[in-house]
Amino acid sequence: MAAFSNSITRLFNIQYPLVQAGMVWASGWRLASAVSNAGGLGLIGSGSMYPDVLREHIRACKQATSEPFGVNVPLLYPDIDKHIQIIIEEGVRIVFTSAGNPKTWTPLLKEKGITVVHVVSSAKFARKSQEAGVDAVVAEGFEAGGHNGREETTSMVLIPMVADAVEIPVIAAGGIGSGRAMAAAFALGADGVQVGSRFVATPEASSHMNFKEAVVSAGEGDTMLSLKKLTPVRLLKNAFYDAVRAAELQGASPEELALLLGRGRAKLGMFEGRLEEGELEIGQVSAMIKDIQPAADIVQEIWEEFNEVRRQLHNL
Rank of each mutant, 00 (worst) to 15 (best):
Glu152Pro: 06
Asn148Leu: 12
Pro107Lys: 12
Ala99Ser: 08
Glu143Lys: 12
Phe125Ser: 10
Val95Gly: 00
Glu152Leu: 10
Phe96Tyr: 05
Gly149Tyr: 07
Ser155Cys: 08
Thr153Ala: 08
Val137His: 09
Phe96Lys: 06
Ile114Asp: 04
Val95Leu: 01
Lys112Trp: 03
Ala136Thr: 12
Gln130Gly: 12
Val116Ser: 07
Lys103Val: 09
Ile94Lys: 00
Val117Lys: 03
Leu109Ser: 11
Lys124Ala: 15
Val134Glu: 13
Ser155Asp: 06
Ile94Asp: 02
Thr106Pro: 01
Asp135Thr: 06
Asp135Gln: 05
Gly145His: 13
Met156Ala: 13
Trp105Ile: 10
Glu152Asn: 07
Val157Ser: 05
Ser98Lys: 07
Val92Gly: 03
Lys112Ala: 13
Thr115Glu: 02
His118Phe: 01
Met156Ser: 13
Ala123Leu: 08
Ala123Tyr: 12
Ala139Gln: 13
Thr97Glu: 00
Val116Gly: 05
Val120Met: 09
Val119Trp: 00
Pro102Asn: 10
Ala136Asn: 09
Ser98Trp: 07
Arg127Cys: 11
Thr106Lys: 07
Glu143Ala: 12
Ile114Ser: 09
His147Leu: 02
Lys128Tyr: 08
Gly146Arg: 05
Glu151Gly: 03
Thr115Tyr: 01
Val157His: 00
Ile114Met: 04
Val95Thr: 01
Val92Asp: 06
Arg150Glu: 09
His118Gln: 06
Thr154His: 04
Val137Thr: 10
